[in-house]
Design a protein around this nucleic acid. Structure first.
Lengths: 212, 212
DNA sequence: TAATGTGAAGCCTTTCACAGCA
DNA sequence: TGCTGTGAAAGGCTTCACATTA
């Protein structure tokens, strides 16, 4: 049960399990077996048990997992047991959509600030947040903001990245691939919408002559 | 050089290579070695060569890869050598942002239709596209639309998914995790923004007492 | 010389089978 | 009996070293 190395893939799946547990728990399930959770999420039950076992055994043989308890455990492992203040940079179309995205709350994320370099946007509000000038980025540390979301256009990505690092941010979710991390002390997760779409046609069945 | 199984991961990386090649080619590079491309993208050069070798040797020893030719080859492998008409369902914040996203063109995607179930939105325009009622979804086949993007709220995801499948769509990019694929004839790629953000804190360094 | 392409080694991840427990 | 947790096997991916080619 003491493993020396926890697979990256197991970490990647924990938030998925957490989402499933939250849904099932809300539906009234007090005890959830790996099979029930697996069925709900469409994954393998032994994968779930294996993944959880890397972090320690949280279940009861014959019964399953206590949903509230397991939710608490996974939150703790992922460091989601504290609220993470988050800043977003780049309030364009995508940035606005992310600011209004309703899915973050479930995991304890709180987007508390938004930045842009366009003077026309500064001072405007999106939801509860007033857009600030990017020069305010340097004060993130004092404001207890530890995560950053980058939604700027490609050409501004590198500069934004550097500023967030300089401001002492601890993790970055970026929607732009256009940067080099340099010395990578900070974990960066990149979502590139176009690149995900780009591999979709590969899996399309070859065209047939007969009508489908 | 005849491999029986092409790793999923190699397919996943091809669009990344393609993006790098397009950038470097635009900058005037006519021949690109795996080292140059790797340096540009921040990946390993042997990984690039290995990945490309799964699909056949496209390079010249001593010289590298002819950029135009390799771009053409990768496009063909990924079936990006034809324009893919794409429909988007759910013109909320995220849907609007995706409709306006400038990164699709590079890969030959053409978003030609957008659908919503909100009568107030139907008939409005986003860029070049007029929003249609979801009931029009059934006619996708006749309109030569083969890919779908789902940006509806969680509770509408399953129904949207079913409709797209029924309309004969060949691949789906979904921003909602809230569906079950049923019989999975169609490739579905899911982007879950919150779940990607949710594993970021895990990698944050443990808090220190000394000021950083 | 400078680069590709690839067998083989090594590493990581998934899957399996089952011991052990409630 | 039903379910967890885990060692071991199997499978897949990455890395390496180098033969080969322009």
């Amino acid at each position: 049960m003491r493993y020396f190395k926890i697979p990256e893939e197991a970490v990647r799946r924990l938030p998925i399990y957490l989402r499933g547990l939250l849904s099932l728990s809300e539906q009234g399930h007090k005890n959830i077996s790996s099979k029930i959770l697996a069925g709900f999420l469409g994954v393998n039950h032994w994968q779930i048990r294996k993944d959880l076992s890397y972090f320690g055994g949280f279940g009861t043989p014959g019964t399953g997992y206590n949903s509230k308890k397991l939710i608490r455990q996974i939150r703790k492992i992922l460091k989601l047991n504290v609220v993470h203040n988050t800043a977003l940079v780049g309030v364009g179309n995508l940035g606005t959509a992310v600011l209004r995205y309703p899915g973050f709350e479930m995991f304890g994320f709180n987007i508390v600030a938004a930045f842009d370099n366009n003077p026309e946007k500064i001072g405007r509000r999106v939801g509860d947040i007033t857009i600030e000038d990017v020069s305010n980025l340097q004060a993130l540390r004092q404001r207890k903001i530890d995560l950053g979301i980058i939604t700027v256009p490609c050409e501004a990505a590198q500069e934004t990245f550097n500023k967030l690092i300089a401001a002492g941010i601890k993790g970055i979710l970026s929607f732009s691939p256009c940067y080099k991390t340099g010395r990578k002390k900070v974990k960066v997760i990149t979502i590139d919408i176009a690149i995900d779409l780009a591999r979709l046609p590969y899996y399309m069945p070859a065209r047939r002559i007969t009508k489908v």
